[in-house]
């Protein structure tokens, strides 16, 4: 259990973390999601006692990190896979850490076994590939069989096999009842692994809720309908209990239903349809909307693009508006 209370970190005039309150509970993967520079790493460093909070506090199982009896037995962290002395062999790196917590040598062998580094254990870690370095970092994190594991952007730069391995590892660790806290700037990655979501933007906690709730709340989908007779169609659709919004361009946004059902209604009423499009905002877009006001560096784009209110934030998978509205068409958008 990790508990942050009013956790704040100020660098000069910049608030890196701004009165963050959140709890990371055992038995599930908690995703820590935020754009680059949102304060994820700073928060994780404060959890580990590496950085001192300007105000507020964060505790591990009720105590500050530096007061844990044997930290590696309770928390395993991978903040930066490159944070090893490259001149030391993988085995010796793990041995140094094991000795710091009075763990037996057998633990070093056990974690080397677990992450599959036997063949290179005696080699200096400076020559390791990113994937091997990541495995070494995870071996170090699991050295003391900790009840809490923390990974900062663990899949960054990994190949598909490595990504899959880490995803499965995190799920397995959570299934064993451990507290798994993992940061990412990719919603798509979180959607695949996290059970619970803590969203941070410009140092502020923007959401702290179960993944299912976040999805339900944020993944809006509606059907865009264009008809030469919108004034007649809209009431007919509303009659079915669907929410209908008339847009300035005379198209209709219909919620709580599917394109086929709208087509059926229109057909039964003898009304013309020129477009019938299922528009689904992906979780990535939901995340971008949520953090839109809190991104540290915007790419150079004009204000009307990627506006927080627009259903389709600029990016891949945006319905092509240039497609002439024609016969009813269904465009399933890929998340």
């Amino acid at each position: 259990m990790i508990q942050a209370t009013e956790l704040t970190k100020r660098y000069g005039t910049r608030l890196a973390v701004d009165h963050a309150d959140f709890t990371v509970a055992p038995g599930k993967v908690t995703g820590f999601l935020g754009p680059n520079g949102a304060g994820k790493s700073t928060t994780m460093r404060m959890i580990l006692g590496l950085d001192r909070p300007t105000s507020g506090s964060v505790t591990i199982n009720g105590v500050p990190y530096h007061r844990l009896a044997a930290p590696l037995r309770e928390v395993g962290a991978l903040l930066d896979a490159k944070a090893v002395h490259g001149g030391r062999s993988a085995y010796n790196h793990l041995l140094v850490l094991a000795k710091a917590n009075g763990l037996p040598r057998s633990r070093v062998d056990a974690v080397i076994d677990l992450v599959g580094l036997h063949s290179v254990a005696g080699k200096r870690s400076g020559g390791f590939s990113l994937g091997m370095g990541q495995r070494l970092g995870i071996a170090a994190a699991l050295l003391g069989d900790p009840g809490i594991v923390m990974f900062d952007e663990p899949v960054n730069g990994l190949d598909p096999e490595g990504i899959l391995w880490i995803r499965n590892l995190m799920k397995a660790l959570a299934a064993e009842g451990r507290t798994v806290f993992v940061s990412s700037h990719l919603m798509s990655e979180m959607a695949l692994t996290a059970d619970h979501l803590v969203v941070i933007g410009l140092g502020r906690i923007l959401a702290d809720e179960p993944m299912a709730e976040f999805i339900a709340k944020n993944s809006v989908s509606y059907v865009r309908v264009r008809s030469p007779q919108p004034a007649e169609l809209a009431p007919k659709l509303a009659l079915r209990g669907w929410r209908v919004e008339r847009q300035p361009d005379e198209s209709l946004h219909v919620y709580d239903t599917q394109p086929a059902q709208i087509g059926d209604v229109a057909g039964a009423e003898g009304l013309w349809l020129h477009e019938l499009t299922l528009v689904q905002s992906s979780l990535e877009e939901a995340f971008m909307r949520l953090t839109a006001g809190s991104v540290e560096y915007h790419a150079g784009q004009s204000d009307d693009q990627g506006s927080p209110d627009g259903p389709a934030v600029a990016g891949w998978g945006t319905p092509l508006e240039s497609q002439a509205p024609q016969a009813p068409q269904v465009e399933e958008r890929i998340q």
Partner: peptide, 23 residues
């Protein structure tokens, strides 16, 4: 590919407080 289960490496030893000796 390494097994993703971690059951095989559980530690049962009681947690001892780290001291100057460990450092």
């Amino acid at each position: 590919m390494t097994a993703t289960t971690t059951r095989s490496f559980h530690m049962d030893a009681p947690i001892r407080r780290i001291t100057f000796r460990e450092a």
